[in-house]
Write a protein that binds this DNA or RNA. Structure first.
Length: 760
DNA sequence: CCAGTACTTAGGTTG
DNA sequence: TAAGTACTGG
């Protein structure tokens, strides 16, 4: 228990408070993670069974790291038995275990944002609603906040206040769309991210025995980043803790930045109400940052009205003032900041991992990325499109998903005609109509066409039949082959591997795509090996929470890189040198928050979070103009710069047109210094367009009257030589499916294709 | 059916 | 700028 002596008095008290409710208000950099880890370790050393502990963190990465640290104190064999993870991952497991109570399959799919949006979009189309009015994102936002406030489709439709809001937004059909969307998800055996919390609430509300079971299993509950929990999360925790009330929540109201996701600072106030005899601990000493940084951040956050009284202070050195840099354009901002990083790393012999570039919006990463590439500085961008969201990865995962859960509608739609099988849009639309009429899933229709009598041409049924047979063969092997063998089998027999392989010599992006698939497969291999012992080494096990993984969860061997991420994803992290870029009005604070005080205050808290990530130096930068939607738009410095008490700031501007930069190192990296010359783009050189200037063939009716048979060798203008594998249709609709060794399998209309029969 | 092109429109943060 | 959709020619 030597570690207790490392703690200050309030940390130590918080760590040793095990029984009964407690709340820890932890200022930025006040050793919150340390308190959490030591508290759990302390509990276990005092006889608490790790199986009885549930710790909810904000990211999977935080959970993993905390588990490791606890393991190093009490031993891994103990720490691994703690239930620890994000709300989403912990409760998705609980939901799988109890799925039958809710009528879901245990291998239900988790729809990510893409899947959910695409389904909603499809429903809006099916309902013949104008998607200019019923913008999928807007409708989804309504559905999402309904779920986060535990409003069911039925109570949504019965709530006059909500209906009025929708009416005023000119989207009166939203209630109906919510219902349709929820039904479709259910029929597809799918939950979206919000469902994981919503359905957990349903489970605990409607099944008292289940609730009682988990109340007694998890006698000790900890919640990190409590200020960012929403109502659905709040209620789950409240219910689970109701019997023993051994609940500890940790948070900082000054760092609440997720209200757009339904997070509610009121949860902190509710805590006092729900547990009147709770004990409050305040961690106010900052161990992370210099005095300048702490004071600068304090001077800004002071302006917020809504906050819990506290005084964050530090014993650390004064440190450097916060440097404020002005650049002329966003491109120049990228160059200047990257040069600063380069110079500092060289002059002081620092690792690149000592640096982070933080911004308000993901798209700001571009100019920094370009500059970092030019100087060959290793970097990693977090957020944006994650590995698991890339097209090729999602395609293959869709096969896995459909094999695991055949009702998964989004997966089916994604792959039924990929690689191309000649199953067209009209066919799929008709099947969906049939599925809706029969109130069943798409899979039910395609796998049992005789039962549901959906009118389709015989040719279409034939192709669908082949697809169904293939999927069934995968399903039959799911429990026999381990995840890796299964994934290999699917990648090969589905034709995906071949498809991507054949495109490999087309360009850099195609090569990357193929490599991504290889990377996914080797990841599955790793998973299979590591899970072999537990017996959970099948493909559905792997699939269980891939939807919940983010970039931050990807293991990287080489850690010496500059970090680029949004301020939101930097929460909880720290770096010696932080560059907070794009400090401009309408960007940060975002243009969209200027209407209400509470939104502006949240933006200010975001600034507070950003500044307090820095340990040694913090640099702010802004550009006086930047490209927005391809248009050069002028911009003004952010109000947050002027809100910092001047004594903590130091201004510097660079690269006036015609002048020299203030580049201290003497490296002249030639700032473009003006509005000229966009950076050369990084795409591979476009292929010479010799092939593009298609010699226009005379349209002699193509080859529709050609006497083509399966097995013939033919030549196509664009695809080259190939072999006919199928013929269908007559007259103008006569089509041939041809396998081209160079281009894969294609179906072409003979009317247009202008095929020539050739000898072997 | 396929693929290239013209056109439109994007509010931002995440598990 | 960039992505996604609608259109069009083969």
């Amino acid at each position: 228990m030597s570690y207790i002596s490392e703690l200050n008095p309030s940390q130590s008290e918080a760590v040793q408070h095990i029984t009964g409710p407690s709340m820890v208000i932890a200022g930025a950099g006040s050793g919150k993670t340390r308190v959490l880890t030591y508290r759990i370790a302390y509990m276990m050393e005092h006889g608490v069974d790790p199986f009885e502990v549930m710790a909810l963190t904000f990211t999977n990465k935080a959970a993993r790291e905390m588990k490791e640290r606890i393991g190093s104190i009490v031993g891994e064999s103990e720490s691994k038995n703690i239930t620890m993870g994000t709300f989403h991952s912990v409760f998705s497991r609980i939901l799988r275990y109890n799925s039958n109570r809710l009528g879901y399959p245990s291998n239900f799919t988790i729809y990510d944002t893409q899947d959910a949006r695409s389904l909603l979009k499809a429903i809006i189309k099916e309902q013949n609603l104008d998607d200019k009015v019923y913008k999928p994102a807007a409708v989804m936002g309504r559905i999402s906040s309904a779920k986060n406030s535990l409003v069911s489709p039925e109570s949504y439709a019965a709530n006059s206040e909500i209906l009025l809001e929708d009416q005023q937004a000119r989207r009166p059909e939203t209630a109906r769309l919510y219902k349709l969307y929820a039904d479709r998800c259910f029929k597809a055996g799918a939950m979206d991210f919000d469902d994981l919390l919503y359905q957990t609430n349903v489970l605990l509300r409607d099944h008292p025995d289940v609730l009682a079971h988990y109340q007694h299993k998890f006698k000790y509950i900890l919640v990190d980043e409590y200020q960012d929990t929403n109502y659905a999360q709040y209620l789950i925790v409240k219910k689970l803790a109701a019997v023993f009330e051994n609940i500890c929540v940790v948070g900082d109201d000054a760092q609440s930045i997720y209200s757009f996701r339904g997070a509610n600072i009121q949860n902190i106030l509710n805590f006092r109400r729900d547990y009147p005899d709770y004990k409050l601990y305040k961690l106010e000493q900052n161990y992370r940052s210099t005095k300048n940084i702490v004071e600068a951040a304090n001077s800004v956050i002071r302006r917020n009205q809504d906050q819990i009284e506290k005084k964050v202070w530090t014993d650390n050195v004064d440190g450097k003032k916060i440097n404020v840099i002005r650049a002329m354009t966003d491109n120049e901002e990228g160059k200047v900041i990257v040069n600063k990083i380069y110079d500092l790393s060289q002059n002081e012999g620092l690792d690149f991992s000592d640096f982070a570039i933080l911004y308000r919006t993901n798209k700001q990463s571009r100019s920094f990325e370009e500059s970092l590439r030019k100087l060959n500085i290793p970097y990693k961008i977090f957020g944006g499109l994650s590995f698991y969201q890339r097209k090729e990865i999602k395609d293959l995962l869709a096969y896995f998903r459909l094999a695991t859960n055949p009702k998964d509608e989004e997966a089916l739609k994604r792959i039924i005609n990929y690689p191309k099988r000649g199953i067209g849009k009209t066919t799929i639309d008709n099947i969906i109509i049939g599925a809706n009429q029969h109130g069943t899933s798409i899979w039910d229709i395609v796998s049992d066409p005789t039962h549901y009598n959906v009118p389709l041409p015989a040719g279409a049924w034939n192709k669908i039949g082949q697809f169904v047979t293939m999927m069934k063969s995968f399903q039959a092997e799911l429990g026999k082959l381990n995840a890796y063998d299964m994934a290999q089998t699917i990648a090969r027999s589905s034709g995906i591997l071949k498809e991507l392989y054949s495109e490999k010599d087309k360009g850099v992006e195609e090569v990357e795509r193929y490599q991504n698939i290889e990377q996914l497969l080797s990841g599955i291999k790793e998973f299979t090996v590591s899970q072999a012992e537990s017996g959970n080494h099948y493909l559905p096990d792997f699939l269980m929470d891939v939807a919940l993984l983010t970039d931050a969860d990807q293991a990287t061997d080489d850690k010496n890189y500059v970090t680029l991420m949004t301020i939101h994803s930097s929460k909880g992290l720290e770096y010696p040198h932080v560059y907070l870029v794009g400090m401009e009005e309408n960007l940060f604070p975002s243009q969209m928050v200027l209407n209400t005080r509470s939104e502006l205050e949240e933006e200010r808290r975001l600034f507070y979070v950003a500044v307090t990530r820095a340990k040694t130096t913090c640099t702010l930068s802004y550009a006086t103009s930047r490209f927005i939607f391809g248009q050069l738009t002028s911009s003004e410095p952010s109000r947050f710069i002027t809100e910092v008490d001047e004594q903590y700031l130091q201004f510097e501007s660079v690269a006036r047109p015609g002048g020299r930069s203030l580049n201290s190192s003497g490296f002249d990296r030639n700032f473009s210094g003006g509005l000229n010359r966009p950076m050369s783009n990084l795409k591979p050189l476009a292929p010479s367009d010799a092939s593009a200037s298609n010699s226009s063939k005379p349209s002699n009716g193509g080859s529709s009257n050609l006497d083509l048979k399966v097995g013939y060798n033919v030549e196509h203008d664009r695809f080259g030589k190939g072999k006919v594998t199928g013929i269908e249709g007559t007259g103008n609709d006569k089509k041939a499916t041809i396998f081209f060794p160079k281009n894969g399998s294609k179906t072409v209309l003979l009317r247009f294709a202008n095929l020539k029969i050739i000898e072997d």
